[in-house]
């Protein structure tokens, strides 16, 4: 199975570095970004499977970052990370295409579990796409014959 690549987006540097360390020990490929803009920038060069995105950030906030990610990288799964007060923005995030949300303070286990779920979902989808493509390929010679 492909190694899960994820990106953490939060304005708390220490949270990013510690969580990165922990996740890397669990053998995940982890990048970090301390703002929405940085996250989008990094996604361009190093694509990931799952983004853990803090809702409340200075500058571009979580929901707008989510929309940008979904627009530019539709195959990236996003998990919203929220304080209680912003449950509503988490819901808005879900409506805008986030796959799940996490309440702060979140356990590492929860983060991993949800990231894995999202990753599996992604893998499922990719699998379906692959199957569909294969079917398309298998069909194509006949169609080519027909058309010819």
């Amino acid at each position: 199975m492909e190694k899960l690549k994820m990106m953490l987006v939060d304005d708390e540097e220490r949270f990013l570095s510690t969580t990165q360390k922990l996740l890397e020990r669990k053998d995940f490929d982890v990048q970090t970004a301390s703002s929405g803009a940085e996250a989008l920038e990094k996604l361009r060069t190093k694509p990931v499977h799952v983004v853990i995105l803090d809702v409340k950030m200075p500058g571009m906030d979580g929901v707008s970052t989510l929309r940008e990610i979904k627009r530019n990288f539709p195959m990236v799964e996003v998990i919203m990370l929220t304080g209680h007060a912003t449950v509503e923005s988490a819901i808005e995030g879900l409506k805008s295409g986030a796959v799940d949300y996490l309440m702060k303070p979140a356990n590492l286990e929860d983060i991993v579990a949800k990231a894995m779920d999202a990753f599996n979902r992604r893998v499922d989808i990719e699998e379906k796409i692959r199957v569909a493509r294969m079917r398309g390929l298998m069909k194509s010679p006949r169609e080519m014959l027909k058309n010819a």
Binding site: T18, K21, R25, G83, H84, A85, K104, P105
Partner: peptide, 24 residues
């Protein structure tokens, strides 16, 4: 209280992750 709780949640999150790291 809402603002306060929200602000407390961020450091709590950090403490929580640090703790996980200590365990590991």
């Amino acid at each position: 209280a809402a603002g306060f709780a929200h602000e407390i949640n961020n450091p709590l999150q950090i403490i929580s992750t640090e703790l996980s790291l200590i365990r590991v």
